[in-house]
Design a protein around this nucleic acid. Structure first.
Lengths: 109, 109
DNA sequence: CTCGAAGTACGATCCAGATCAAACTTACCA
DNA sequence: TGGTAAGTTTGATCTGGATCGTACTTCGAG
């Protein structure tokens, strides 16, 4: 979907709470976000963020996360990837991302 | 489902993050929780928490919220109702409920 | 004891969305 | 200039879960 890399100013706005929750409520997508959040750069190529999934299914999930304003599609080195929109999320729903990642960590994930 | 009122010690445990998100990701249920959170006593009869819904559909949603550990079925005055399990939730996923209610309030809801 | 109001249980329907396979696109590398 | 690796697109399928109507339960008021 990104011809090269989407300019940060024409990214979709972070969605409303309800849509955010919908996006995060899927186990596959939650895991994607968890891995990105764990990543130091909060940035990774697509294939690092899932396993045991058809590629087209992964694309489907990425699209939902991007449209919810959670991920930013970027180029990571040679291949495509995504960046977690930490500050935008923090602005939209302060504390949400932290609450989730901490709780997931405590669950042993 | 409650013969009279469920003893607090045999309530279902608060579910894992993923299941919590699933429970909250539905517009009807999110609104139910929002109204309860807004309520001073965090407690209300069923029918105060939704509108324009078939009663059996409402029961369905309540069941999901109870099984996720978000609500506690109780007697509110003469009729049945639910209480928001604030402290249990705060223990399980600190900050989540606050983050959501604040963001919803800022959305104008 | 019956009536009505408030929820619950059950069964049926219906649709969003999760999944996959296959074909196509792009970019990099030999 | 192929070839391969990584994603995307498209189209099809299938299932979880949201919804409703109807019947049943329970409680309080008369």
């Amino acid at each position: 979907m990104p011809p090269w890399e989407t300019p940060p100013d024409q990214l979709p706005p972070v969605a409303a709470v309800q849509k955010l929750l919908r996006a995060l409520a899927d186990p596959v997508r939650l895991e994607m976000v968890r891995r990105l959040a764990a990543h130091p750069a909060a940035e990774a190529p697509c294939s690092d963020l899932y396993e045991g999934l058809n590629k087209s299914t992964a694309t489907h999930h990425f699209k939902i996360l991007v449209e919810a304003g959670i991920l930013h599609p970027v180029m990571v080195g040679p291949s495509r990837g995504h960046r977690l929109r930490r500050t935008a999320l923090q602005e939209a729903v302060p504390g949400l991302l932290d609450a989730l990642t901490e709780a997931l960590a405590r669950e042993g994930r």
